[in-house]
Nucleic acid binder design. Sequence first.
DNA 1: GCCGTTTTCGGCCCGACTGTTTTCAGTCG
Length: 573
Amino acid sequence: MPVHNSEIATIFDNVADLLEIEEANRFRVRAYRNAANTIRDLSRSLQNMLEEGEDLSELPDIGEDLAGKIEEIVRTGRLPLLDEISDEVPEAIVEATRIPGIGPKRARALFEALDLSSVDDLKEAAEEGRIAAIEGFGEKTQARIRKEINQGVIGGERIRLDVAEDFAEPLLEWICKIEGVAKAEIAGSYRRRKETVGDLDILVQGEDGGAIIDRFTKYDEVEEVASQGKTRSTVTLRSGLQVDLRVIPEPSWGAALHYFTGSKSHNIAGRRCAQDRGLKLNEYGLFDGKKRIAGTTEEEIYDGINLPWIDPVLRENRGEIEAADKGELPVLIKPADIKGDLHAHTTASDGKNSLEEMAQAAKEKGYEYLAITDHSKSQTQARGLSEDALHRQIDEIGALNDKLDGIRLLASCEVDILEDGSLDFPDKLLERLDLVVASVHSKLELAEDRQTERMIRAMDNPLVSIIGHPTGRRIGERKSCALDMERLLQAAKDRGCVLELNANPVRLDLKDVHCRMAAEKGVDIAISTDAHSTGGLGNMRFGIDQARRGWLATENIVNTRSWNNLSKIVRRN
DNA sequence: GCCGTTTTCGGCCCGACTGTTTTCAGTCG
């Protein structure tokens, strides 16, 4: 049974959580967390690395001990250490640490003082007023615990980037108008363009922090003010989104922007770089002793630790600091590089606009081409085209292209990959198309081997140009199907098949790490919107952000090429 | 538990805010 990196990382994170509750050495706890982060970001599967006899202790943050534990997990699917400490620490304490404001120490103190055995017991104790009586606890903590448990918000879900934008952009605009605010910017994972964000970190430049924050907490959509000081405040909006605001004086702006953009592990690595040079880096600046030597801009900060500015999308401590140090940062793809969109639907299947309307919208984006990829016949719920209907659409596109000026429609189809890997339309029909996108829409639950083989079999057909939304995931709704990504990428490379990076913010399929793996293997990527309306073409920017997070450059992306060049790549036969 | 131009020990990122107590630990980011 394949063991995935994410499972191993989760085991290590769980060990860290439990060790923390047991008050183990905090650096040992951190070692497990660091290892989990390293593992989560690896571009290769640990299982494969082991099978190929590689020494895992050469990986960063993995030493002899953890390498041995990984081997054990891969072999048995379990880690005895985790089983042992799981027995020692009641599950309810672990759950209690998910209440904001309750960490490992207080969770343990609560359960020991009150002799509780579940979170329900904790709720009961809070309602009966027994928590406030414990030394070190008080009324406020008790009220908070009661509220958090009743709201059932233990944990808190991450919000999709596009959803966060809907709340963030109007809020930012409003903040910019507060008196005394010189400028404002959203930092955090939002600025790094992660596919989901946990909260918003907003920085404002201004002098009178107390007044600015006071005004901020009066924003129309603020439901609760969790904390409020002179430089910092945390509120929750009615939408459930948590917003942290920090007021930054001008000389520290760059340092604060860098610090609060993160990621945390990028910052830690950055501070080590500073330490190596005998300097100290924090959110106020870069310091030589007590003297601030940089801080106004991010460029200054990086320059001070002898690095070029690193784009926020790369700041995940996935090797960007080392690459920057060697002058080997990728030249990332940018919106202006895109010459066309290779996945779009019309009213012929489940789209909302006609061929003409889609062509016009693509032209307005400055594109050279737009591929029309309506569904194939098996997709009855999406009004998939019959063979005759596709024949007719190909003729229609041909005729329309004669009339169109400055944009070319490509005759295409999003053909279903059937359960056995064969295609929903015969080759004879597909041969008439400019290119073919092949996607899986059914039987997403197949076992990893069968799912992987199914897609590889589809790629065996040289008429298939691009595999659409390869993993089928929908963020927050549906997990990725089980796929051996390394094998899939190798198969794509061997066959010259392109993989899609679906730019729909609900999909963003491939993930950033998969994009990076693809680039490392030399697999071409198409960033496509899968637009079902003219507005949907605008999702390209989410795909580009994702590609940039995956270190992709112009040359990795096929739809940065003119059709003359692109046609040679997508016509493999 | 990891790591090393300070290499087998002794370090390990850093500061704000809260709630509690009255000088600070815990938590968070």
